[in-house]
Amino acid sequence: MSWLLDPFHYPFMRMGFLAVFFVGITCATIGVYVVLRRMAFIGDALAHTVLPGIVIAYFYGWNLFWGALAAGLITALGIGWLSRRQELREDTAIGVMFTGMFALGILMMSTVRSFRDFQAILFGNVLGITPANVVLLAVVAVLVLGVLFVLFKEMELVSYDPNFAAVIGLKTESLRYVLLVLLAFTVVSGIQAVGVVLTSALLITPAAAASLLTDRLPRMMLLSSGFAVLGGVAGLYISYYFPVSSGASIVLACTVIFGVAYALRAIRSRRSSREQQAG
């Protein structure tokens, strides 16, 4: 049992566990909408487009979180604006913003002498997270989950029948912007844990695993959060006991959970088709 408790003797591990908890539940809950509304590309794009904001914040000595958040919000609103009248398909708008902002980030990074300064941002460093950043992650979690809870019935309706939602007076465009802005907050908090390159995995993989096991939206969100926290904790243990990257371990642990969920789903489908044949 002592191997389970050992990591908790270290403050950086305690902070890490708290961080993956907050990041996990936030990413996994909004991730359900990302998966169901087929917005996976947006999550990936947002994670990459925060780069110029981070580099600017680094240049001026600001907190990188706020730089990333500013760039994330610009991207989210830019995607919404470019595709608002369907003159451009949403995935095309994302492609334009994604590559443009990422290229700007790389261009700005190339003016810095050492890439190592940005390593934590690119690949995540949850074990180096400060108590102040954990508080920020908690605030983001409360904000995102609070808004999703308050707007639950409206977000649900607009996700599967936007026309009916508009007929009863809901501003479907505004709700889309709300979701994009929440996504920007979520992605920026995810970057603290697993970095720019792997954040979209935290959004998508636990939610995709949950969607294989249940067809109730609230249950899917709870299950997805559970998977993300489980993957985060497992990843931290792996990186504690083996000299491997914490971000990659967390994502791989989530991928294993997805594999198990996929296998369970396959077994369940086979069993039910066998029962149908017998019946």
């Binding site: 169901l36 409206e154 309706l157 599967y160 029948d161 009916f164 969607s211 109730r216 899917m220």
Partner: peptide, 26 residues
């Protein structure tokens, strides 16, 4: 408004009762 059936995302995880309850949201 009753839309054409093809305008809904039928794969979204909602049951019949919840879909019908949406008629009361307004």
């Amino acid at each position: 408004f009753l839309p054409q059936r093809s305008e809904l995302d039928w794969r979204f995880p909602v049951n019949v009762e919840r879909l019908i309850t949406a008629g009361r949201y307004v």
